[in-house]
Design a protein around this nucleic acid. Structure first.
Lengths: 248, 248
DNA sequence: CAGTGGTCTAGACCACTTG
DNA sequence: AAGTGGTCTAGACCACTGC
């Protein structure tokens, strides 16, 4: 016998039901009451589970009408978004990295602002080229606060996932803000990515913080335009994506 | 006297409190119990309001510890994301458009797939250049299903917001999936945007559906790379953004 | 009009943080 | 050990959908 279900387990059951075709795309789902009955949980627990699926874009809901299936559930989580290595393994590619440089430096204006430091405070700058199955697809230029940077010396940057390594030291990247735009590859970018100068690159500038909101890293990642796409799903009810005028 | 607060109003009060500096960045917020008491609502209502702010990336929460302020609240909603006009007005720019073409056509492979039609079914294709204060910043190439497309004939495309107009007809774009990547401007793009061929463009391909999940439009929007940035915020708890290998 | 989802309450217990 | 957030229950009322 299964133990009593929590809302996460219930959500997982529902995801599986959708994947298994029990609830095809566009179908009406059972009512909250029916599901509560079927799984012997309260209506609140059912609603909590549905809230997860709504956030994931799997179902739509409207007052008075039964919920409908919008899309098939996906494997995706913050870990995969944060870590190139984890993401690559998920899609069945072999991730690797080539460290170009790692240096201790004094924070410039932008680093100071993004990391909540004073200009001149110590930071660690890491430049890496990331490869998928041997093909260079991304340049990562990251500035870490000193506390994190000093740990990097102990990590085999070309083999291990920095995220995984930092977690072993009790450092968790919990929140992130991503700014995404497009730029032409400059000669340095082009050389690292083995492409022509001027190639369109997708740039992701990311600021990640620990659970309390203290900045840990500030990164400028440039993806080969024809290798990467970002996917965002949203609804009237939740819009985690915003447009903004280019911040120069 | 104010009437009894709902969770949305409570969330708005809390947003204002953060904006007004009552709760500065990084500060600990009052406990759920204290807020419930202060506003004469139940603890559940407080939690519901906090859930909104968490989703917006404004606060962080951890079991056992008080919530902390992560960032200042932003004006952003789905309407601004969906509609170029609404977004432009929000940031204080004057939006305008120049319609290049509007034609009834038969769906090609991609349109059929994205709109859930059969190849050859009727679609309406609209091409527009969008301008901010007279400067071209985006090319919009959209395919609408017939039901929506036939309404477009009655809209002054260069002056009105299509979104606003469609809502008057009872058509609501409720869900959307956005795929974002970078490409070099081809000669046609360059001419429309008054820039050089090869300029990096930020491409957003978007599929929008009505509340029940039926596709209504499929669009390929190309933004001048140096004019636009997309912003995404997320946490371990919710990841609406996913990477994906370029779908060719 | 019955059914369904949206909101709210009051109370309980647990897991975790903090002093 | 006390405080705090996370989870769950049971029940109530309202707003909206769809027959």
């Amino acid at each position: 016998m299964s133990t009593v279900l929590g809302y996460r387990q219930l959500a997982e059951r529902l995801r599986e039901a959708v994947l298994d075709g029990v609830h095809p795309l566009g179908a009406k789902l059972p009512s909250e009451h029916e599901i509560a009955e079927a799984y012997s949980v309260s209506r609140s627990t059912v609603r909590r589970a549905f809230a997860l699926l709504t956030e994931e874009g799997v179902i739509a809901s409207h007052q008075g009408a039964r919920r409908t299936v919008l899309a098939r559930p996906r494997e995706q989580n913050f870990g995969e978004l944060r870590s190139f290595s984890r993401w690559a393994r998920l899609i069945g590619e072999v991730p690797s990295g080539r460290t170009i440089s790692l240096e201790r430096a004094m924070a410039d204006d932008q680093e100071a602002e993004k990391l909540g430091l004073a200009v001149g405070d110590p930071v660690f700058r890491l430049t890496r080229v990331r490869l998928l199955s041997g093909r260079p697809v991304m340049i990562e230029r990251t500035a870490y606060v000193e506390r994190v940077g000093t740990l990097l010396a102990t990590v085999d940057l070309d083999r291990e996932s920095i995220c995984d390594a930092l977690e072993l030291f009790g450092i968790f990247l919990e929140h992130a803000e991503h700014a995404i735009d497009a730029i032409n590859a400059d000669p340095a970018d082009a050389a690292l990515l083995e492409t022509a100068a001027g190639t369109a690159l997708l740039r992701e500038r990311r600021r990640a913080t620990d659970p309390s909101g203290s900045p840990l890293e500030w990164s400028d990642d440039r993806y080969l335009g024809d290798a990467m796409t970002f996917i965002v799903r949203n609804s009237v009810a939740s819009a985690p994506l915003a447009r903004s005028i280019r911040d120069r």
